[in-house]
Design a protein around this nucleic acid. Structure first.
Lengths: 127, 127
DNA sequence: ATCAGTGTGCTAGGATTCTGGTACACGGAG
DNA sequence: CTCCGTGTACCAGAATCCTAGCACACTGAT
């Protein structure tokens, strides 16, 4: 799973970074007690200003997902896996809700929406 | 079909207005040759600054959906219905693609995604 | 003690979006 | 012609996001 930044996306970069770690921790890769890359390290990896990383990490810390250890790094908390799995569900559910809302405003019936979903799925390949 | 503005949404207000008319024209309500509300009238209706309406209408005009008639108003072009139906499909298809992309990044299998879609659908009621 | 690496705090500027206000040009009704 | 409603053009400010740079405080290894 790689972080693929979209600078032109409407979701801010700091939030793309935030989601990236939420999804990774939810998947169990950086487990509780382990650390995620330092602010400067992460900034250099993805070619983003350190302040943007600080912003993203600040959100994760406020959510209780990581804890800052001065001189050490950012450590994944014990509750992080549970929190991240919850947030993952919430994020995707919101996406689905947005899709339904858009379809409703567009006057598209659910049948046509299902057909559209199938078309897109086929178009993306059976991956 | 009512314009329900979301000022806190990530999609700019001018683009919400633009989509609103695309969906309405695609549905055939303001037919070709008819007019949509003037800049000032629309601004007063939805309590938004006229400049924001100008921005939205400018996008519609550049897409060939409306044509500005000075002293008269904004008139729906003959090609507008076709253009708007195409754009409607494109907008929704993009939403679906975004959902799949997000699910993939989150490490969610398609089976679980389908289950999530059903849950949200049931939660929204059988409307 | 010294040093490198870490998180933290601050100020500043550019880009985009929206709001606010003003002025000008065009067309139809009186 | 005069007036009103129309689209158009400009300038300015607030808010958010990102970039940029700098200084400071803390931790561990040397």
């Amino acid at each position: 799973m790689t972080l693929n930044l979209s600078p032109d996306s409407r979701v801010p970069i700091f939030e793309q970074i935030e989601r990236y770690w939420i999804y990774r921790i939810a998947a169990g890769d950086p487990a509780a007690g382990e650390r995620i890359p330092s602010v400067r390290d992460m900034a250099q990896r993805i070619l983003v200003h350190p302040n943007t990383i600080v912003h993203a990490y600040g959100e994760l810390e406020q959510a209780g997902i990581i804890v800052a250890r001065r001189g050490i790094g950012m450590e994944v908390t014990a509750e992080a896996p549970r929190i991240c799995r919850e947030k993952r569900e919430e994020l995707l559910a919101n996406r689905v809700r947005e899709l339904f809302a858009e379809a409703e405003q567009a006057g598209i019936t659910r049948v046509d929406l299902v057909r559209l979903v199938r078309d897109v799925m086929n178009q993306m390949g059976a991956e």
